[in-house]
């Protein structure tokens, strides 16, 4: 089913861009830590920014790997900002001290997200295999706020935090965070390997979302965001989203360190390469993207009244677990 609204979009609204798979951490749920790809020199990255600016992609979000591992990040962001792009990133915060925060501000970052998995320092450190990482992540939020950069907090929901997600919200409040992303657990990379230990059961997901949506409704001092299409199947769910189902391949694309484009960071299928292929051809004609945009109900989705909004849930998760886009999301509780 194609989305009338995005059918003829000329380009994605957001490029999630992994500049490097390298990282100073080694987290249990990381989707990309075991991946490798050649990294592009700065000049090629600036060429890519020219392409994105020409295609009028308004937002780029650097992820990874740790974006600050590349010491040309500031130069890249500065260039992108100069071209009118809105730049943000996700970081583990380890390398964000006062000086880095000021530089991030100076090169025009619209917001910086810091990943925090638990409001308990020991649990966060253990999960990230990095002693002291909680304190540095929290300090990063403070450095950024003092430098005048809008901050967000990203928490991947898993067994270690789903019962205590309110503590994460309190932590965010205490450090002046504008928005908290409670990300759904993706079964990719290490996340898939460690799935048994980390992932919730479908019933637990349902209970979590019912509670978290209630908290979101009652919260006025903090923006709370989810990125899980399967939520739309909850009775009474009426939040407007720009598209039905996964937004990947419709509103956003992901780019690897070598310029290869994938629908999202969690689907390891390459659509083409931004430096080697014509972007419009990839965007409009890629068979992979077309399949993502035209999901067909299969299995239990066929009789599900929520399919129109949910479109089978998270395509990346269905693909990781079953090898097929059109299978129902393994998190689905129906």
């Amino acid at each position: 089913m194609a989305d009338a609204v995005t059918e003829l979009f000329s380009a994605p609204l957001t490029f999630n861009w992994t500049l490097s798979f390298r990282c100073n951490f080694s987290c249990s749920h990381c989707y990309s830590r075991d991946e490798q790809a050649e990294e592009l020199p700065t000049a090629d990255i600036l060429r890519i920014i020219d392409i994105l600016a020409e295609k009028q992609v308004p937002f780029i979000n650097f992820g990874g790997g740790e974006p600050l591992i590349r010491d040309d990040l500031f130069e890249i962001a500065d260039y992108a900002t100069g071209k009118g792009l809105n730049v943000s990133m996700n970081s583990n915060g380890w390398l964000v001290d006062t000086a880095a925060a000021n530089r991030l501000r100076a090169c025009g970052f619209k917001s910086v997200g810091i990943s925090i998995d638990s409001a308990e320092a020991a649990l966060h450190d253990d999960f990230r295999n990095m002693p002291g990482s909680f304190d540095r992540a929290v300090a990063a939020l403070d450095h950024l706020r003092r430098a005048g950069v809008r901050t967000t907090m990203s928490s991947v929901i898993s067994r270690i935090n789903y019962r205590n997600f309110r503590d994460l919200l309190d932590l965010a409040r205490a450090h002046g965070v504008a928005q908290v992303y409670l990300h759904n657990f993706k079964c990719s990379g290490r996340g898939l390997k460690n799935r048994e230990d980390l992932d919730l059961s479908p019933e637990e997901w349902k209970a979590f979302y019912v509670e978290a949506l209630q908290v979101k409704q009652e919260t006025t001092d903090l923006l709370i965001s989810f990125d899980d299409p399967v939520i739309s199947s909850l009775p009474g769910y009426d939040e407007k989203s720009l598209v039905s189902g996964s937004s990947c391949g419709k509103l956003s694309l992901h780019m690897r360190p070598n310029g290869d484009i994938t629908p999202c960071g969690f689907i390891p299928l390459v659509v083409g390469n931004i430096l080697k292929d014509d972007f419009d051809t990839l965007w409009y004609d890629s068979p992979i993207l077309k399949k993502m945009r035209n999901k067909e109900a299969s299995g239990k989705c066929m009789d599900c009244g929520a399919f129109e909004k949910c479109l089978g849930g998270c395509t990346a998760r269905a693909f990781a677990v079953t090898g097929e886009f059109n299978q129902p999301d393994p998190h689905c509780w129906k």
């Binding site: 979009f9 009028q56 308004p58």
Partner: peptide
């Protein structure tokens, strides 16, 4: 405000 002319759509 971030905005964009959707050229292909405009042509349609």
């Amino acid at each position: 405000i971030v905005w964009r002319v959707e050229k292909r759509r405009e042509a349609e």
